Computed example of a mutant assay.
Amino acid sequence: MSIAKGDTLPSATLMELTENGPEKVASEDIFKGKRVVLFAVPGAFTPTCSINHLPTYLENRDAILSRNVDEIVVVAVNDPFVMGGWAKATGGEGKIRYLSDPNADFTKAVGMELDLSGAGLGTRSVRYSMLIDDGVVKELNIEDDSSQATVSAAATILGQLQD
């Protein structure tokens, strides 16, 4: 069962590539006491994710943060080295937090796993976005078709954000 508006995010461990190498990050440390916009993509460096989805958040970063948002986070079922490489390649390093969910632990905990093994991609994430306030899901935007990035794009979150 997937997470819904009003639910508290489950506890899970994600990873982040830092200057010291890959480091584990507890979901509580990311969301507790903060207002965070999280969006998830099926995979770093994939066409829709890199061309249509992530750029909407980079282009609207300042507008989102100006609406009482502490941080923007992108999550993908990729390893932390891939996410770190994607951050550099997209110019998003230091602007958006790129988190890795290498075993899909977080993705499964929120019920957003997507089986793309038929396409040789294994378990991935459904494409979605959330507004999270102190660990509670305030807004949730799930794409019906993960090859699209419209419902979960930055414009939707901007429309949902209130000062």
Rank of each mutant, 00 (worst) to 15 (best):
V75S: 10
T90A: 15
D101F: 03
A89Y: 07
L99M: 01
W86T: 10
L99W: 00
R67D: 15
D70A: 08
D105V: 14
E71V: 02
D105S: 13
N78K: 07
D101Y: 10
A87D: 05
T107G: 11
K88A: 15
V74F: 00
P102C: 13
S100F: 13
E93A: 11
P80V: 14
V75D: 09
S100C: 10
D79H: 07
V82L: 00
T107Q: 06
K108A: 12
V75I: 14
M83A: 11
N103A: 15
A87N: 04
K108N: 11
D79R: 08
G91C: 06
N103Q: 14
W86V: 06
V69E: 06
V74A: 02
K95Q: 15
V69G: 04
I96N: 02
V73M: 05
P102R: 04
P102D: 11
S100Q: 07
A87R: 05
K88W: 08
F106H: 13
R67S: 15
Y98I: 00
K95T: 14
M83G: 07
V77A: 10
V69F: 01
N68L: 14
R67K: 15
V74Y: 02
G94M: 05
K108I: 00
K108C: 01
P80K: 12
M83T: 10
D79Q: 08
F81A: 13
I72W: 13
T107P: 06
D79P: 09
V82H: 00
F81Q: 10
N103F: 14
E71L: 03
R97T: 12
D105C: 12
M83V: 01
M83S: 08
A76G: 06
E93P: 07
E71H: 04
N78M: 03
G94Y: 11
A104Y: 08
I96V: 07
N103R: 15
V74E: 00
M83N: 07
T107F: 09
N78Q: 09
G92A: 08
I72L: 12
T107V: 10
G94T: 04
E93T: 11
S100L: 12
T107L: 06
D105T: 12
F81H: 11
A89T: 12
L99C: 04
F81G: 13
E93H: 01
R97C: 09
M83K: 01
N78A: 05
D79T: 05
L99R: 00
V77Y: 06
V69N: 05
D79C: 10
K88Q: 14
G94W: 10
G94H: 06
A104P: 09
S100P: 14
I72D: 11
D101H: 13
A89I: 02
V74C: 05
W86I: 01
K108M: 06
V69S: 02
V75F: 07
D105R: 09
V74K: 00
V75K: 04
G91M: 00
K108S: 12
P102K: 11
R67P: 15
D79L: 03
W86R: 06
V77R: 10
V75R: 10
A87M: 05
G84L: 03
G84F: 00
A89C: 12
V69T: 04
